[in-house]
């Protein structure tokens, strides 16, 4: 029997619901020796900013129990070099290309980036990274005594940025949310109200690890973003909460290592999933999950992956 893995994210049609998480796949070229890139549901680039960013000082990563802390600081060549040097390879792959963007300042930068990308036909969608915990400039000064906040930690800021970008592009728009909030559903709803086509969750959880002997943090910047299987239960819970509150599709991610962990996200309400940290460990994870999903559906006589989405029995 024919198994249907096709899903839609806004106007974006994916052949299968398996994508990669921004920042864990570079600009795809590094993976061409390991997998057939054409088999992916979509490719999400490492986040691009208007100007090149050097990134944070090392050490930038450290391993934790079933997890990984990182504070890369959005090192990227900037949009000009991205278009010149990275896009030529990406545009030839032939799967939907999602470009992740972030701002070093205000929503103006998101708008400028989106305008540039809007003109490139091979860019299928734009992902708004309003949730990177590792750059100061991605944060907005608070009016109160609190010093800094991520855009995605505030529903009003989220609404403003999404609305502003929505105004300049007809491409599918994905908003990536931070788990470092009291109630993620408020933020998801703000993004939905502002016109995002989908929400992607979760970005990394803020964490810290200490080198006991030296009494210093293991990451140069002190705090960092935690990813990997350690955060999966948090991510699944958040997907389920958001699923109950929004009508737009959810791209679920957070510690997906294999087919079984991917299935958790579909059942909780994700229309698509993204593999992140697992790409570092097994570069073939995405491909293995795609065939794993097919086998699972066939074995359980499910014709369409969409039957699974939000099928949680509770």
């Amino acid at each position: 029997m024919g198994i249907n893995l096709k899903v839609k994210i806004g106007k974006l049609q994916l052949n299968n619901p398996v994508m990669v998480a921004s920042g864990t796949f570079g600009y795809a070229e590094e993976f061409k020796d390991f997998i057939d890139l054409k088999k992916l549901g979509a490719i999400v680039t490492k986040t691009i900013t208007l100007k090149p960013r050097m990134g944070n000082p090392p050490p930038r990563t450290c391993e934790t129990p079933a997890g990984l802390l990182n504070s890369i600081g959005l090192e990227n060549p900037g949009i000009d070099k991205f278009i010149q040097e990275k896009l030529p390879f990406l545009r030839k792959i032939g799967v939907p290309l999602i470009v992740s963007i972030a701002s070093e300042g205000d929503s103006e930068e998101f708008v400028s980036l989106a305008r540039r990308l809007d003109k490139i036909p091979e860019v299928s969608a734009i992902e708004l990274n309003i949730s990177c915990p590792n750059i100061k400039s991605n944060q907005k000064p608070e009016t109160s005594n609190q010093s800094y906040k991520l855009i995605s930690q505030d529903p009003n800021s989220t609404y403003e940025v999404v609305k502003a970008v929505r105004g300049v592009t007809k491409k599918a728009l994905i908003t990536k949310l931070s788990p470092n909030v009291t109630d993620i559903t408020e933020i998801a709803q703000a993004a939905e109200a502002a016109g995002t086509d989908a929400v992607a969750l979760i970005n990394t959880l803020m964490g810290m690890s200490i080198e006991v002997k030296a009494g210093r943090p293991k990451i140069a910047m002190g705090t960092a973003g935690l990813s990997g299987p350690a955060i999966r239960p948090v991510a699944v819970r958040m997907v389920w909460e958001v699923y109950k509150k929004v009508k737009i599709p959810i791209i679920g991610m957070g510690g997906i290592m294999d087919t079984s962990s991917a299935l958790e996200f579909f059942i909780a309400g994700s229309s698509a999933i993204a593999v992140g940290t697992a790409n570092f460990i097994n570069p073939r994870t995405t491909i293995e999950i795609i065939s794993g999903l097919e086998k699972y559906l066939a074995r359980n006589k499910i014709k369409d992956i969409k039957e699974l989405i939000g099928s949680l029995k509770i």
Binding site: G26, E30, F34, R60, T61, I72, F280
Partner: peptide
């Protein structure tokens, strides 16, 4: 973290 040039961690 990755050893294949994508995570930008080992710089």
């Amino acid at each position: 973290a990755c050893g294949i040039g994508v995570c930008m961690g080992c710089v």
